[in-house]
Computed example of a mutant assay.
Amino acid sequence: MKMHQDSADGSYRIVRYGADGVQINEQIYTESLLLMPDQIITSWAPTRIEDLNGHHLTQAQSLNPEVILLGTGNHQQFPDRAVMRPILQSGIGLEVMDTGSACRTYNILMGEGRRVVAALIISID
């Protein structure tokens, strides 16, 4: 897992997303990642919703967000309830949506100064 920090203005904004990946500021990412306004964790393991387990969401939870936006690829797909339960019981919000919606929502919440984590499953075929 690689970590990057220090964008030019101190925040990471999603510029675009599509079949070739997600562009954050000037960089294009083609692997799943965890994104916060001040931090990017690359090479996040799940490449499809079936790969997601509790450890992956615990990584997002460890960043102390108010809310986690789980982008599940081209379509909204819900992980097993047992995977989501610890996050929901912790009081952290968890929103499951397709990756495009997660990217748009991340930018809005980040712009409001919220402590948000976008957990984006990206699979390039």
Rank of each mutant, 00 (worst) to 15 (best):
K2D: 11
S7W: 08
D9V: 12
D9T: 14
D9E: 12
G10T: 07
G10P: 07
G10S: 09
S11A: 11
Y12W: 11
R13E: 09
R13W: 13
R16A: 13
R16I: 07
R16T: 12
R16H: 08
Y17F: 15
Y17W: 15
A19I: 10
D20A: 13
G21R: 09
E26F: 05
E26A: 13
I28Q: 09
T30Q: 13
E31P: 00
L33I: 00
L34T: 02
L35C: 02
P37K: 09
P37M: 04
D38M: 02
I40S: 03
I41T: 07
A45C: 03
P46F: 01
P46G: 04
T47I: 08
R48N: 13
I49N: 01
D51S: 02
D51R: 00
L52Q: 03
L52N: 05
N53C: 10
G54E: 12
G54P: 00
H56L: 02
L57N: 05
T58C: 05
T58H: 08
Q59W: 03
A60Y: 02
Q61H: 14
S62W: 00
L63C: 06
L63A: 06
N64Y: 00
P65Q: 11
P65L: 14
V67Q: 09
I68W: 09
L69W: 01
L70K: 10
G71L: 09
G73F: 11
N74T: 14
H75P: 05
H75L: 12
P79N: 11
P79H: 09
P79S: 10
D80W: 07
R81C: 08
R81A: 14
R81N: 11
R81T: 10
A82R: 12
V83H: 06
M84Q: 10
R85M: 15
R85C: 07
R85S: 14
P86T: 10
S90H: 07
S90A: 12
G91S: 09
I92T: 14
I92P: 02
I92R: 06
L94F: 07
L94W: 05
V96I: 15
M97F: 03
T99V: 02
A102S: 07
R104M: 02
T105Q: 06
N107V: 08
N107Q: 04
I108G: 08
L109A: 06
M110S: 15
G111V: 03
G111L: 02
E112K: 04
G113S: 06
G113D: 05
R114T: 04
V117R: 05
A118S: 06
A118L: 13
I122Q: 07
I122Y: 03
S123F: 10
I124L: 12
D125N: 11
